[in-house]
Design a protein around this nucleic acid. Structure first.
Lengths: 124, 124
DNA sequence: TGGTTGCTCAACCGATCGGTTGAGCAAGGA
DNA sequence: TCCTTGCTCAACCGATCGGTTGAGCAACCA
């Protein structure tokens, strides 16, 4: 219990059934029975999945008589995207800097991919 | 076993320790002991986390003598990002279309938020 | 009023997860 | 040669996960 929001989102999306539910909700709201139809599992199981998505903030549910249609909260997806993009970008920048560094280095220090440790770069 | 790649990536990122490891690897490669240092758990536990990230394709490991430095495979992050962005966009487009539709509708059919089901829209 | 529909809650089950300890092994270094 | 370093494998443990069945409940319908 009491895990951080990002973990909740990622682990909610770690299940293929739940991802499929999200995909379908992106096309439009749906009730529990509508959602459950394609899968070979009980409504209770799908209800649990829905609960996980709800706890992650990925879906909200309204009260329409005895129906409780699920609605995709698409902004919550941004939580995950932002995290991913941040480190993707950070790693990419590092590669780019490393590449520039290697490119700028005089040939007698970093001539080419290491072919044999020949002690020739042993300064300090 | 044999779960799909996307599930592997998402569930690998569902753990805060593993996410932290990814964040640190974005800044540079690191060995197991370097990675393990900040966390209050055994190296074996961190080795397991590393394994999960490896199985997800998020890190690769090289063989440098008895060291096996971990390297972030940042492109794998795109797998998740692409999925997220797709449904984010799909949902957003749907909202936009719905909004346009409502805006275009004559006032006597969709006047404002439902305030009472008054049977006045009951055409079959 | 009595039945059906839409959904939830509770208990249970086997599998997986995140962690532990203990042992072991390959590669360097003294 | 022996010791240390860096890492892995195996077994175990409690908790959580995805699924089940069974019961129950609130809201609509005839």
């Amino acid at each position: 219990m009491a895990v951080d929001p990002l973990s909740r989102v990622f682990s909610a999306l770690a299940d293929p059934t739940r991802r499929d539910m999200v995909a379908r909700l992106a096309a439009g709201d749906a009730t529990l029975f509508e959602l459950a139809a394609p899968y070979g599992v009980s409504v209770q199981a799908v209800s649990k999945h829905l609960r996980v998505l709800e706890d992650a903030g990925l879906v909200s549910r309204s009260k329409d008589a005895q129906r409780r249609p699920a609605h995709l909260e698409a902004e919550t997806l941004d939580l995950a995207t932002t995290w991913l993009e941040r480190y993707r970008r950070e790693a990419e920048e590092r590669y780019r800097r490393l590449d520039q560094l290697l490119r700028r280095l005089p040939d007698d220090i970093a001539p080419m991919p290491p072919q044999e440790p020949t002690t020739e770069g042993a300064r300090s």
